[in-house]
Design a protein around this nucleic acid. Structure first.
Length: 576
RNA sequence: CGGGAUGUGGCUCAGCCUGGUAGAGCACUGCGUUCGGGACGCAGGGGUCGGAGGUUCAAAUCCUCUCAUCCCGACCA
């Protein structure tokens, strides 16, 4: 492509709307433009990167035996009502009516549609397994879209669905997708982790997220520094180490209420009693579909709401406002404690080992001192309810856990029979028995993968595209357009590179050299070829890799070494 | 939905407090010079100051409402 003819509007200044690096660079590099909050157009340069990721995704999905389909983006409400997600999915589902006042939605995901398709086609175990995928535009009406392509409302997703005869077979499908995803993200040049994750609204019973490590990521993951354990912070556990409790301490002192005016937070209470937060039992009220409950954890720990939800078996969970807690339960937030409450109490597994502790008195302005587990309170379910911290022991091997931030680019789920039961997708097995298909679903945020790649591969001057997804593999900078011999050579080289299948952005613009260098860096094209009058006279062309600080010179009369450089880059890239 | 902020040529912003002829830089058009890290000179074109209403002799500026966007939180493949 000739730069002079390409619609590639690079920006010197960062548009005010962009905060995170990938968003800024994608705007500056002329890859995307915003239409509305969370809704973006892809410009030619951005689309080339997107297509490159898609190509890798297709290759690896096909290699894993999946077949591409294209399902409708607009879906009838009936299907969603049948799966009972029409109500459950909430406001994120973009709903609308057609001219006949029939309800439709713009698909945020396609479990319903694919299951409907398959239940009408597949009757026999002989037709299974099946794995179908598509690359398509999704719409989720996110509460807060942000960070450009990172969390858009309209976005391009690869979603795939597998159908198997039983759980063992479904596990094989899942494993094969896990391998395919590992290959995909490796080929995209990303530093990522596959981590255990919560299944969320999709449902099902087992899932892994593929998280690209980046400080700007919205997700936190815990991973072991020794073994291969890694989990989303929502799901992450640590090995529990029992500590001995000093039995004598505090036994003689019965619990007593102390006036603690204006001490509502753990820090304030700790300061008041001149103790560590670890000596305070932190009590919080949660409201779920099963009713209210109280959760008690050590004062220095954060409650992990996903663990609370799992421990209760609840579908949803939220923290009620202090006003609501007062109205419904008559309890004063800030002075809560587990003694004498008439709602279920969940106790973190560490609480019984806290020894003598302080907790709220359930009375405005008072805390209780000298509280002991087993003596003053003991009711309640005991579970692991807190968020893991860096340095805690790995649940598998006991080595230290580390916490990293990252961007979720892919998520795979074992769905089991959740959707096949709801939508009655069955087949006859070998014995003539009717059975529900066992499903899995597998998503990749394609645009988000591009953004994550930029987030992970950039410097002060701009993007440093991994070779595999670079919109152009080479940038050819003609610094002396007016020199006929330089231009003639550039034209020849440009054509030769194209003939060799190397995509080139030929900068033939009537611009000063500085502009061309700046743009080449900003655009992050892996190989930069620079030819000017001086170099031409010396018979050399300058070759610089975007991710290297040094350049090398190649003889103009023998370009074989240059072509082998591209061969090598290409080979490294497809080595996975 | 709660909290914070911002809307002024294509982009980045000043002007607003203290009402009185809409500005700068970049970008764009033409001419000339320049030409290996975002050049310079001269001459140009381009703005319902997000929208509506109000106050006023007079509103980008003050008031009310509204829309949009961004950030934090809650939420979420």
């Amino acid at each position: 492509m000739r730069f002079s003819r390409m619609h590639l509007p690079t920006l010197k200044e960062v548009p005010a709307e962009a905060e995170v690096i990938s968003h800024r660079l994608m705007l500056r590099a002329g890859m995307i433009r915003r239409l509305a909050a969370g809704i973006y157009s892809y410009l030619p340069f951005g689309l080339l990167a997107l297509r490159n990721v898609e190509a890798i995704v297709r290759q690896e999905m096909n290699r894993a035996g999946a077949q591409e389909v294209l399902l409708p983006a607009v879906q009838p409400a009936e299907l969603w009502q049948e799966s009972e997600r029409w109500d459950f999915y909430g406001k994120e589902l973009l709903r609308f009516k057609d001219r006949h006042q029939r309800d439709f939605c713009f698909g945020p995901t396609h479990e319903e549609v694919i299951t409907d398709l398959i239940r009408n086609e597949v009757r026999s175990y002989r037709q299974l397994p099946l794995n179908l995928y598509q690359v398509q535009t999704k719409f989720r009406d996110e509460i807060r879209p942000r960070f450009g392509l990172m969390r858009g409302r309209e976005f391009i997703m690869k979603d795939g669905y597998s159908f198997d005869v039983d759980d063992a077979a479904a596990t094989l499908s899942y494993k094969s997708m896990r391998e395919a995803y590992t290959r995909i993200f490796s080929r995209c040049g990303l530093n990522f982790r596959a981590v255990e994750a919560d299944s969320g609204a999709i449902g099902g019973n087992f899932s892994h997220e593929f998280v690209v490590l980046a400080d700007s990521g919205e997700d936190a993951i815990a991973s072991c520094t020794e073994c291969d354990y890694a989990a989303n912070i929502e799901k992450a556990q640590s090995k529990f180490i029992e500590v001995s409790v000093l039995e004598s301490e505090g036994d003689s002192e019965p619990a007593n209420a102390v006036a603690t005016p204006d001490c509502q937070s753990i820090d304030e209470v700790a300061a008041f009693f001149k103790v560590s937060p670890t000596a305070i039992a932190k009590s919080m009220i949660f409201e779920t579909d099963l009713g209210f409950c109280m959760v008690v954890v050590p004062g220095d720990r954060e409650v992990n709401e996903f663990k609370v939800k799992a421990a209760l078996g609840a579908n949803w969970l939220e923290i009620p406002t202090p006003g609501r807690v007062a109205d419904e339960l008559g309890l004063p937030v800030g002075y809560l404690g587990p003694l004498d409450v008439d709602i279920p109490v969940l106790v973190d597994r560490q609480v019984p080992y806290m020894g003598v502790m302080i907790c709220g008195a359930n009375r405005e302005g008072y805390h209780l001192q000298g509280i002991r587990w087993g003596r003053d309170f003991s009711s309640g379910q005991i579970a692991d309810l807190v968020q893991v911290r860096a340095g805690e022991p790995c649940p598998h091997c006991g080595a230290a856990l580390q916490i990293d931030r990252g961007i979720e680019v892919g998520h795979i789920f074992k769905l089991g029979t959740k959707y096949s039961e709801k939508l009655n997708a069955t087949f006859l097995d070998q014995d003539g028995q009717e059975k529900h298909m066992v499903m899995g679903c597998y998503g990749i945020g394609v645009g988000r993968t591009v953004a994550a790649a930029i987030e992970q591969n950039h410097d002060d001057n701009g993007i440093c595209f991994p070779y595999a997804i670079a919109p152009f593999k080479a940038a050819l900078l003609n610094l002396d357009l007016k020199s006929e011999e330089v231009t003639a050579f550039c034209e020849k080289l440009y054509q030769e590179l194209l003939e060799r299948g190397i995509t080139v952005l030929y900068d033939d613009r009537n611009e000063r050299p500085g502009v061309k260098f700046k743009d080449a860096d900003l655009l992050g094209i892996p190989v930069r070829l620079t030819l000017g009058r001086k170099g031409f006279k010396r018979g050399i062309i300058e070759v610089k890799l975007r991710n290297s600080s040094t350049s090398q010179e190649f003889a103009l009369d023998d370009l074989k070494p240059l072509y082998s450089l591209f061969d090598k880059l290409q080979a490294d890239d497809s080595r996975i």
